[in-house]
């Protein structure tokens, strides 16, 4: 497949995915600082992992 056959990269979509990872990382940091229960922290870590996989899939399709 040549470069011209790739779908164009949607910077907006990519930026949003990265921003969601950032926000959840910031949330984890804040929750750890404020001794929030572990299950809530792990929930945010799980969301970060999902968003990373989503981001990787998106880039692989381009």
């Amino acid at each position: 497949m040549t470069d011209t056959e790739h779908e164009p990269l949607d910077r907006h979509a990519l930026r949003n995915m990265l921003n969601n990872i950032t926000m959840n990382a910031e949330l984890v940091k804040l929750m750890v600082q404020q001794d929030v229960p572990n299950d809530q922290v792990l929930d945010s870590v799980e969301k970060m992992l999902q968003e990373c996989k989503h981001c990787a899939r998106y880039l692989n399709q381009r």
């Binding site: 949003n16 921003n19 969601n20 926000m23 959840n24 910031e26 949330l27 804040l30 929750m31 404020q34 929030v36 945010s44 969301k47 968003e51």
Partner: peptide, 12 residues
């Protein structure tokens, strides 16, 4: 996904 994380941050 963004609003859920940001809302929690604002509450914290």
């Amino acid at each position: 996904s963004f609003t859920e994380a940001t809302a929690k941050i604002i509450q914290l």
